[in-house]
Simulated assay, not measured.
Amino acid sequence: MIEEILAHSHVVSLPMRVRFRGITVREAMLFEGPAGWGEFGAFTEYDDAEAAHWLAAGIEAAYQGPPVMLRDTVEVNATVPAVPAAEVPSILARYPGARTAKVKVAEKGQTLADDIARVNAVRESMEQVRVDANGGWTVEQAVSALNALGELQYAEQPCATVEELAEVRRRVSTPIAADESIRKAEDPLRVVRAGAADVAIVKVPPLGGMRAVVRLAAELAEYGVPIVVSSALDTAVGMSAGLAAAAALTNGDYACGLATGRLFAEDVADGREVVHGRLDVGASVPDPARLHRLAASAERRAWWHARARRAFEHLR
């Protein structure tokens, strides 16, 4: 199967509008199967075992297609990178009608004052504000920061470990959301059993596919923990899978982090337009001209192909 996948693959390099998650170019391997297009875009620092989940998600999309969906639109949040407060209005303008914004905080080289200014700028036009620290704070830093930032819908991954999340949750009134502690864990429910999270952030690729997200949502519901489906900085192809998973959930009370396509200067397909804070659900088919224009170098294509072969061996 892997050679068939590679024969129908395209490795792309997408330029980003601003630095996000420490990168300015997003690479991914896209491939077409009988059910549509799939994406393999595990971040380059991930090992082959972890990357295998991302490949499984792409194979599911290309060879099985989406699960049964219950709605045809999904509410989304605006995403605000760690930019100066003065740049916030121009970023929020890309998300017309959005009521919720996720704001990156705890960026290396920045201060809590920078975070407060950014969050306050977002509050001027958003009903709900959530922050994402990507595990960048210690417990003491998280407690201090969350007390200073004021009312938030939740704080996503304020610290790196489950034990730290549990400690922060005991000491602040802000709800705590777990991201890395779920998607990088062999036991995604451990963080919930440990009393370390009020909300779970889930992403299709690292969990191995859309159906895995739906199954995990059902398990978490037994603990009273809602989920928010978010993007793994996916291209338009991968975003289709995220939207399909969100649309398949029986409970969709929280805005999803699935409008990150606005972070790309150019994508492989026309981006879905945010209308009244929502995105339409449906497959994205790459534009052949863009696949050619955004193609990565031959060296990078070879690198992704070799990586896909190694990841496939883990699936076998």
Results as ranks from 00 to 15, higher is better:
162 V>F: 08
52 A>S: 14
268 V>K: 05
217 A>K: 08
157 Q>C: 08
157 Q>N: 10
132 D>V: 11
272 R>C: 07
92 L>N: 06
292 H>V: 13
226 P>K: 02
33 G>M: 00
250 T>P: 00
112 L>S: 02
10 H>S: 13
199 V>Y: 06
158 P>F: 00
215 R>K: 15
206 P>H: 10
273 E>K: 15
125 S>N: 13
15 P>N: 12
78 A>M: 05
245 A>H: 01
314 H>Y: 14
222 E>T: 14
273 E>L: 14
192 V>A: 13
46 Y>G: 01
42 A>P: 09
29 M>P: 04
22 G>A: 12
142 A>W: 01
92 L>V: 05
282 G>E: 05
132 D>M: 02
279 L>Y: 03
120 N>L: 08
138 T>A: 01
94 R>T: 11
241 A>E: 06
261 G>Y: 00
46 Y>C: 09
152 L>V: 08
147 N>K: 14
150 G>Y: 03
148 A>I: 07
82 A>W: 02
14 L>R: 01
190 R>F: 06
284 S>Q: 13
298 A>L: 14
266 E>R: 15
46 Y>L: 14
119 V>W: 00
77 N>P: 04
33 G>D: 02
22 G>R: 12
256 C>F: 02
56 A>L: 11
273 E>P: 00
250 T>D: 12
212 A>V: 07
230 S>V: 03
235 T>S: 15
195 G>Y: 09
272 R>G: 12
8 H>F: 05
97 G>E: 10
155 A>F: 01
75 E>V: 13
296 A>I: 04
202 V>Y: 03
13 S>A: 15
72 D>L: 07
52 A>V: 00
289 A>V: 12
266 E>T: 11
158 P>D: 03
15 P>H: 12
60 E>R: 05
1 M>S: 12
271 G>T: 04
274 V>T: 04
84 P>G: 12
180 E>M: 08
192 V>S: 03
266 E>V: 12
135 G>P: 05
297 S>D: 11
277 G>P: 04
223 Y>G: 05
